[in-house]
């Protein structure tokens, strides 16, 4: 199994990498971890500070599952690829982000997940291994969300286009 771990372009998230490293001591998956500016020493993951956007695309295609911070960029990209994704929110109390907006993000999305959806939310690090095993057992063409996002009448891009076309 190939696993891509990514913490995004800005801040490290060592609490997550440590847990993945510990899980992989027994699992021995192929884990590539994009860890940011993190000085931690990890034994069982292949760690790199950053990936270029072409490397990142390539690794997204390569992996069976993504484990990531609860960043919208990662969520959107995995949604588009229908890629298995487990997100763990950064917490301001551990100085992992400036505020707890990742908790707000997952509060929106968690109701759309279940143990049969490709997208999962992990708020307790002790649960990560269990969730990983569950997600890996799913078919790759299962639904990303268990409940469809409410359908949207408006197109954001269409609105932007109308702004540009109407005001010269």
């Amino acid at each position: 199994m190939n696993i891509l771990v990514t913490v995004g372009a800005q801040l490290p998230f060592s609490r997550l990498i440590k847990v993945v490293d510990a899980i992989n001591e027994s699992k021995r998956f192929n884990v590539l971890a994009q860890i940011g500016e993190d000085n931690g020493h990890y034994e069982y993951v292949n760690a790199t500070p950053f990936l270029t956007s072409s490397e990142y695309k390539e690794k997204l295609a390569w992996c069976d599952v993504v484990i990531a911070h609860a960043g919208m960029g990662t969520i959107i990209q995995c949604l588009e690829l229908n890629k298995k994704l487990i997100v763990v929110p950064r917490l301001a109390s551990y100085s992992e982000h400036r505020n707890d907006h990742q908790l707000d993000t997952i509060a929106r999305f968690e109701p759309m997940t279940s143990n049969s959806s490709l997208f999962r939310v992990c708020t307790d690090m002790n649960e990560l291994e269990k969730i990983l095993v569950e997600v890996l057992s799913l078919q790759n063409d299962a639904d990303f969300f268990s409940n469809k996002a409410q359908s949207d009448e408006e197109s954001l891009g269409g609105y932007i286009r109308s702004l540009v076309e109407n005001e010269i």
Binding site: A9, Q10, M72, G73, T74, I76, G157, G158
Partner: peptide, 13 residues
């Protein structure tokens, strides 16, 4: 990062 992914989607739309 995430900001740019969203921007790319909007431009695509």
């Amino acid at each position: 990062g995430g900001h740019y992914v969203q921007l790319g989607n909007i431009i695509k739309q």
